[in-house]
Design a protein around this nucleic acid. Structure first.
Lengths: 324, 324
DNA sequence: GATCTGGGCGCTCAAATGAGCGACCAGCTC
DNA sequence: GAGCTGGTCGCTCATTTGAGCGCCCAGATC
């Protein structure tokens, strides 16, 4: 099985000739065999040897642009994702990285959405820039998946949903409610409001959702930063390590039920799990354990991210599951 | 035929996934199609696109060692050689380069020779080191192809022929005569000597010859340096641009008949042309036009050389014939 | 010399692949 | 709406390719 002994220069060169003609000139093995006056079986064996000895090197590369197709493909394989989009954006400027990833998510959304879809959306600082890159959309209905959190720049989830709906021309199903309330009774009362109940009634029909992944750590999740230290610790003790559209996720990538749930206006975990395609955006190497957990389960089907986080994820996957 | 539009990230990534699985994991297109849930035709088209757009990069590389298989293969194709051996030897130290090329020629000879062969040999400073690398040889008869020139270090053609014969255990057919004589009559007389005539009678049975290529310029040919300036110019005027075992070669790679021939004890050009396999050793970028001419015709079937000369040859071939 | 053994070679047959073709669809023009 | 056009898709059929097998030869062992 080794082949190509080092003390047979003519065979090494012959293998190189065969490899050139096969891989670079695109000739068939039969043609090569005829030209070189050897059997097609020998051609095949020489090619095998050339591959085995590393004489033929094949790389799946960056075709240009900022999309790293090779990393994206690896991520798909390693985590069983249906789609992954890894972009070569520099990490140094956080604001620019967020903006570009938001636009990239818009690109991905345009690419994935089809006229029959019903789009669900949640909010994050990264996603708030998504609409800027949307140039064309089918007129899909768009559903607000969670209550709103007050954004620093005033562009909130309702703005995002409406912007996206305007581009496609489809109906926007929005409602006015905060994401977190002080007590469960008030949350329940709010959920009974007609517009909110109406929006949530549409969730089962959502076919494509765009959400961000938060990590359960300071500064890495809007919710983490919005609650008390005691609540943070309680959830961490329950195994929460990531957060997806207000749904808490454990290390196995499945939703974790927490006492906080009753005080939140969000699509419930089981409902989120039933959405056929959930596209996530994640950002920052420090989030890698959280993202790893989130995409490990079956909840997340697509991921938009940048190269350094992607590499960190692949490293985690290699270390643990022994993925190739 | 272009495919993979830049504004379809998912298709680009899909192509990368397909390419990974096909080229790196060795799966069949049918398997890939089944895994990804697409048709095998789509797999084939994605692979074509990936090749076209340069997403898949294939290089035929150096497997290690000093033999550059890629350059060797290119040289074979560009000049229609049966065998080429290009070695990555540094150019800076001429003595070392010559020694290593001589040994490399020995390697090539061991590789190419088979028990039924009759080996013909001529001399050059490079070839004088050939025997040093010979470890095993079939017991082939070995024939001296030319008269001798006095070597600087005393190791002459007869020594070389005898050394090679000793390693293989075959008979050595040598004779005592200089390569160049002062007048034609004396040369004719010498040719009639029994041992010389005997050796030359064997030339038609020679199946494999090892010779060096000289360029028609000062310091690049033993013969050039051995004759008068007037003779040099006369031969140059006749179109001589290279020299092979004492046979003068024109720009078309075919032997040139010259007045000098009658004064030389060498295998005649037509006889040399009839040898089934002529293996040449050449050295030095300054010889590239001569080597190019010599290997252009059908006289030379194999070449042992170093990377920089090989590249110069390919450059010449590209410029002229438009070889790819 | 007889026998064994390992490796290279080329055959057969089934699976994989490519070339070419028509179906289908979206967008456009009239 | 009818008709045209450019593009993608998957089919058929012929060719190419791979897996496995037996042959043959060289070298080792007895």
């Amino acid at each position: 099985m080794a082949g190509l002994s080092a003390d047979r220069p003519s065979e090494v060169v012959l293998a190189a000739r065969v490899a050139r003609q096969f891989y670079l000139e695109g000739l068939s093995k039969v043609d090569i065999a005829d030209r070189l006056g050897i059997s097609r079986f020998r051609v095949a064996r020489l090619l095998d040897s050339a591959r085995e000895t590393g004489m033929v090197r094949i790389e799946i590369g960056l075709p240009g642009g900022s999309l790293d197709a090779g990393l994206s493909a690896e991520l798909c394989s390693a985590f069983g994702l249906k789609h992954a989009f890894v972009f070569n954006f520099p990490d140094d400027d956080e604001r620019a990285l967020r903006r570009r990833l938001g636009e990239a998510a818009g690109q991905a959304l345009m690419d994935l959405i089809t006229p029959g879809d019903v789009l669900g959306m949640s909010w994050s600082r990264t996603l708030s820039g998504l609409a800027a890159a949307l140039t064309q959309m089918p007129p899909c209905p768009i559903v607000q998946l969670t209550g709103a959190v007050p954004p620093p720049d005033g562009r909130d989830l309702l703005d995002l949903v409406r912007s996206v709906a305007r581009i496609g021309g489809g109906p926007a199903h929005v409602f006015y409610a905060p994401m977190i309330l002080d007590d469960a009774q008030m949350a329940a009362a709010i959920r009974r409001q007609a517009d909110i109940a109406g929006a949530f009634a549409l969730v089962p029909s959502v076919t494509l959702a765009v959400v961000a992944i938060g990590a359960w750590a300071p500064g890495l999740s809007t919710i983490y930063d919005a609650i008390t230290p005691a609540e943070r610790d309680a959830l961490a003790a329950q195994g929460v390590c990531a957060e997806l559209a207000g749904v808490f996720i454990g290390e196995d990538g499945r939703p974790v039920t927490t006492p906080l749930d009753s005080r939140m206006i969000v699509t419930p975990g089981p409902a989120l799990e039933r959405i056929p395609f959930v596209l996530c955006v994640a950002w920052g190497v420090s989030k890698s354990p959280a993202v790893c957990a989130a995409i490990r389960g079956d909840m997340v089907h697509g991921l938009v991210t940048h190269a350094s986080l992607a590499r960190a994820l692949l490293h985690l996957a290699d270390g643990r599951g022994g993925g190739r």
